[in-house]
Structures are given as structure tokens and as C-alpha cells.
């Protein structure tokens, strides 16, 4: 059982992670590099002179080590997520729910809500240089929000009674009603246009990432099961 979980998760994490890394490098990284010009002070928003919205940015192959590390860490991160997802898929299958690439898409959507949308709804994906509260406090809030959103998604998927749905709604709302650690003052030098585009791109790529991860996890879980039976 454990080797089936491990093998499916490794395949799903590696394949989905590689595609996600390329999506991030192509769509998110240029926005991040643009923001870093303001973070470092190379460009100044609302300085004496107007600033071009299209500065020269390093290309994909100008910083090979940095981008290779990003690919590696994206694959690792999504392999970690794949382990969580496939483990829960194995429990769901044990309780009689079919796990396929198709149903994996729903698992992916639930993963996106749990790990990306729920924490990002209040702690928006941060572009470099934004003002933010202490990182330790934000991490505690992040983990607590992910835990309560994950439990909520499980209750919505498998609870099948009104009490479960009500508890799920409370779990989804509570972290945002309580509120996340916020900075005392705004000090971010990055134009709002860049910050907004970054958050939109991070959410968009995140959604694609999780749908891919769910579909691959369902596919490899089923394929590994058939291989074991053959």
C-alpha cells in the first residue's frame, strides 16, 4: 500500500511539477523580476520622472542556476502535495469512492482551495517588496487556515449531511473573520499594477497546477493499482 502511494505521488508530483514550473517561469517570474527592480530601488515609483512600464528584464536563460533551482523546488513542493493528496485518495478509495484521472480534477480543485485560495484570500500572494507582518506569525496563520480549509473540503466532499456542510462553511469563514497578521504600516515600493498582476498570475497558475496535480495523481494511482494486480 505504501509503495503504491509513494510511486503514484512521485510520478504525479514530478510530471505536474515540471509543467507547473514552466508555467511559473513563463507567466509569474517576469512579474516577480519586474517587482524586484522596485524592491532594489533600481526603479522608483512616483519619483521625479515617469517610469516605463516595460523595462529590460532578465530572460529565461540569463539566470540558469536561479531558474533551475526554481524548477527543482517546484517539483519538490508539488511532490509533497502529491503525497498528501494520494494518501487521502487511498483512504477515500478504501471507503468505496472511485479514484480516476477525472475525479482527480475535483481533488485538484479542492487542493487549490485548501492550499492556495483559502490562505491567499486574506494573505494575498506577495510580490517581493510588499509590506507584511512578521513571517513566523503569518506562517502560523497560513498553516491554521490550510488545516481548517482542508478539513472543510473533506466534509463538503464526504460529509453528506447538513451539519457537515455547516461546520465546513464555518471552518472556511473563521480564519478570515478572525483575520491574518497585517503590517502596521505600508512600505511597499512596488506599483499596485505589478502587485495585482502578480496575485492574479499566482492564483491562475496555482489553479492550473492543482488541477494538473489532481488529474495526474488520480491517473497514476489507478495505473499503479492495475500494475500491482496484473
Amino acid at each position: 500500500m505504501f509503495s503504491r502511494i509513494l510511486t503514484s505521488a512521485l510520478f504525479a508530483g514530478a510530471v505536474a511539477g515540471l509543467i507547473i514550473a514552466l508555467l511559473q517561469l513563463f507567466f509569474v517570474q517576469p512579474v516577480l523580476l519586474h517587482a524586484e527592480l522596485y524592491e532594489s530601488g533600481a526603479l522608483v515609483h512616483f519619483g521625479a520622472d515617469p517610469v516605463t512600464a516595460h523595462p529590460e528584464l532578465p530572460g529565461l536563460f540569463d539566470e540558469p542556476m536561479r531558474n533551475l533551482l526554481s524548477v527543482l523546488f517546484t517539483m519538490l513542493t508539488y511532490t509533497g502535495y502529491a503525497l498528501l493528496m494520494v494518501a487521502l485518495m487511498s483512504i477515500a478509495e478504501g471507503r468505496g469512492h472511485a479514484i480516476t484521472a477525472r475525479s482527480g480534477i475535483l481533488w485538484g480543485l479542492a487542493g487549490f482551495v485548501t492550499f492556495h485560495l483559502a490562505p491567499g484570500f486574506t494573505l494575498a500572494p506577495e510580490v517581493p517588496g510588499v509590506a507584511a507582518a512578521d513571517v513566523g506569525a503569518r506562517q502560523i496563520w497560513w498553516f491554521a487556515t490550510v488545516a481548517s480549509a482542508g478539513l472543510a473540503m473533506w466534509l463538503i466532499a464526504f460529509g453528506s449531511n447538513i451539519v457537515a456542510y455547516a461546520v465546513a462553511a464555518l471552518l472556511l469563514l473563521a480564519p478570515h473573520v478572525i483575520g491574518a497578521p497585517e503590517p502596521d504600516v505600508f512600505t511597499g515600493p512596488v506599483p499596485t499594477e505589478i502587485g495585482a498582476l502578480f496575485a492574479a498570475r499566482a492564483f491562475g497558475v496555482g489553479l492550473a497546477a492543482w488541477v494538473l496535480l489532481g488529474a495526474f495523481a488520480g491517473y497514476f494511482w489507478q495505473a499503479e493499482g492495475q500494475r500491482a494486480e496484473a
Partner: peptide
């Protein structure tokens, strides 16, 4: 490890991914 540990080598290597994936980074 990839998303949250603040050790500086790990943080620098994973920096772009942490931002792009929406983890609290700095």
C-alpha cells in the same frame, strides 16, 4: 522544507517558488 523553513540557503534557493506559490516568504 521547500515552502516554510527560513534557513537562508533554503530560503534563497526556493525564493521565487515561495512567492509564486503564495507561501509567506520574508
Amino acid at each position: 522544507l521547500t515552502g516554510h523553513v527560513q534557513a537562508s540557503t533554503l530560503h534563497d534557493a526556493a525564493h521565487d517558488v515561495r512567492h509564486a506559490t503564495g507561501f509567506p516568504c520574508h
